[in-house]
Amino acid sequence: MTLTKADLVEAIYKHHDSITKAGAIDAVEAFLRISKENLISGSGLLLSGFGKFCVNDKRQRKGRNPQTGEDLMLDARRVVTFKPSGILRDRVNNG
């Protein structure tokens, strides 16, 4: 099962008596907007106890079309990677 944005909104709404559903939506949207802006600018996003999202540059490199087997050059690009915290990694592996 995959956790969706709607699931996050619902969980925040249910666990906080003082917040309305609209407030939960605004909070999730604000967090995601700030996170995206930060990553787009090239900065990392560190969430203590959860992990770190980083933006890495990949250089141009040789590739192959899997359908035709033809060699080609893949453009340089930026990718977002995630490194879980030790706490999260231990919890995932040990329940």
Rank of each mutant, 00 (worst) to 15 (best):
V79F: 07
V9I: 15
A6V: 09
P66S: 02
H16G: 03
T20K: 13
I34F: 04
N38E: 05
R61T: 02
I25T: 15
V79K: 12
R78P: 03
L46C: 07
L72R: 11
L88F: 09
N94L: 12
F50Q: 03
G95N: 14
R91P: 00
I12V: 15
F50D: 07
I12Y: 05
D17F: 09
L3H: 04
G49N: 07
I40D: 05
G86D: 11
G63S: 00
V55N: 03
D17G: 11
D17N: 10
D71S: 12
R59D: 02
T2F: 01
A11P: 08
R33N: 04
E70V: 07
C54T: 15
G51V: 03
G42M: 00
G49M: 00
P66R: 13
L47K: 06
A11Y: 03
N93I: 10
A6E: 09
R91G: 03
P84C: 07
V28Y: 08
L74T: 10
R61K: 10
K52L: 02
T68C: 07
D71A: 14
T2V: 12
L3A: 01
M73H: 01
L3G: 00
Q60G: 07
S41C: 04
S41T: 12
S85A: 13
L47I: 15
V28K: 09
I12A: 08
L88Y: 00
R77H: 11
T81A: 01
T4P: 01
S85Q: 06
L8F: 02
D75W: 05
S43W: 06
K52N: 09
T81C: 00
R91Q: 12
D75Y: 04
E37S: 11
R78L: 08
A22S: 14
D17H: 02
S41G: 13
R59P: 05
L32P: 09
L74Y: 02
L3Y: 04
R78S: 03
I25E: 07
